[in-house]
């Protein structure tokens, strides 16, 4: 049994299920009782009341601290930071307190906190409402980082994040919010740290996160018309990271492209590239390609933002580049191009 629903509805349903199942779960954040700017928490305050669906002033540092303190005192808060761009205001609490409390207390404290936020560009939000900052979070031991690319995963990963004993940052993407997908009627938790192979193929592996998963599927379709079969893998969680699934794929395809919407420089893709070359250097027939945004603040003007954002075309180009100079060339399109040059 499943229902066709949007990403926001799926997240909201997972939250409501968790609140029905466990009275320690509560939702806190700016305008959450009104549903928030994207309606993700719509309906929750009507069902659970405004004590458990708690609006806050615009005080990201304090509300993050409040959520951590409540978690340490046995509650299971789901905190919303409305835009990942504003997580900057809460980073002290998240990085210095939530991430380290279990370790610094020698295992006495636990912080079962889910910090929901959303990032991503494409809506003309300008440089302060459009960023993808997840790589910062993956650099902090003690945090888990989840980035669902579709409604069904968003629901199942949210259920798992709420059950997790430690702090989980749950990064949604605003451009995915109103895309529909079949979501199970009964939401089952999806184990954190398990990648999903979204499309199988033997010629190249594309590891993509969040919005780039859909772009990777579109690129794979275009490449398939040229006889190139791409395998698309969505890690779903960056911490913990399912390296095994990716390495197993690369051993078959011998080529890898890593794609995210965040800027390439210092992005999580660099970590994936390093880990894969350490594990499977001898299996690689070409340098690993990276796709992401250029190293510049996100522009506002629509044609500039469109040009800035990585997507299907950049992925297709990156896959084509992989075969240049490769002796084990299996990509006829590129081969033809090289010969004529």
């Amino acid at each position: 049994m499943s229902r066709n629903e949007t990403y926001v509805k799926a997240v909201g349903r997972a939250l409501a299920d968790a609140m029905r199942a466990d009275e320690r779960v509560f939702v806190i954040g700016e305008d959450v009782a009104e549903g928030g700017p994207y309606t993700t928490t719509a309906g929750l305050s009507e069902e659970f009341g405004r004590e458990r669906v708690r609006n806050t002033p615009i005080s990201e540092a304090a509300i993050t601290g409040v959520a951590i303190g409540a978690a340490q005192s046995g509650m299971r808060p789901v905190l919303e930071i409305m835009y990942i761009d504003f997580l900057t205001l809460a980073l002290d609490q998240l990085v210095n307190a939530a991430a380290k409390a279990h370790a610094m207390s020698g295992g006495q404290l636990t912080v079962p906190l889910v910090l929901r936020t959303q990032g991503g560009a494409g809506q003309r939000g300008g440089a302060q409402h459009s960023q993808s900052l997840e790589s910062w979070l993956t650099h902090v031991p003690g945090l888990k980082v989840v980035m669902p690319s579709g409604a069904a995963d968003a629901a199942g990963l949210m259920a798992a994040a709420i059950l997790d004993p430690g702090p989980v940052v749950f990064v949604e993407h605003k451009a995915l919010y109103f895309r529909r997908e079949d979501v199970p009627e009964t939401i089952e938790p999806i184990e954190l740290g398990r990648a999903r192979t979204v499309r199988t193929g033997d010629d190249v592996t594309i590891v993509a996160t969040s919005r780039m998963v859909g772009e990777a599927l579109a690129a794979a379709q275009e490449l398939a018309e040229e006889g190139i079969e791409a395998e698309v893998i969505d890690p779903r969680t960056l911490v913990p990271f399912d390296l095994d699934t990716i390495v197993a794929s690369v051993r078959r395809t011998n080529r890898l492209v890593v794609a995210h919407e965040a800027v390439v420089h210092g992005g999580f893709g660099a970590e994936v590239v390093a880990a894969v070359q350490e594990a499977a250097f001898d299996d690689l027939d070409a340098p690993i390609g990276r796709v992401g945004a250029p190293f510049a603040p996100i522009p506002f003007s629509p044609p500039l933002e469109d040009a800035y954002l990585p997507g299907r075309q950049q992925l297709v180009d990156a896959v084509r580049r992989l075969s240049v100079g490769s002796p084990s060339l299996r990509l006829p399109y590129i081969g033809a191009g090289l010969t004529s040059a």
Binding site: E51, G65, A70, M75, Q93, N96, A97, S105
Partner: peptide, 30 residues
């Protein structure tokens, strides 16, 4: 930190625990 005796903790970040204490008060209320 001494959870058994309700000492939920010191911090090296000046004032960093002030909002967390409010969170514990909220837990008590809820």
């Amino acid at each position: 930190v001494d959870v058994e005796h309700g000492f939920l903790g010191a911090t090296g970040v000046v004032g960093g625990n002030v909002p967390m204490a409010l969170g514990s008060a909220l837990a008590s209320r809820l």
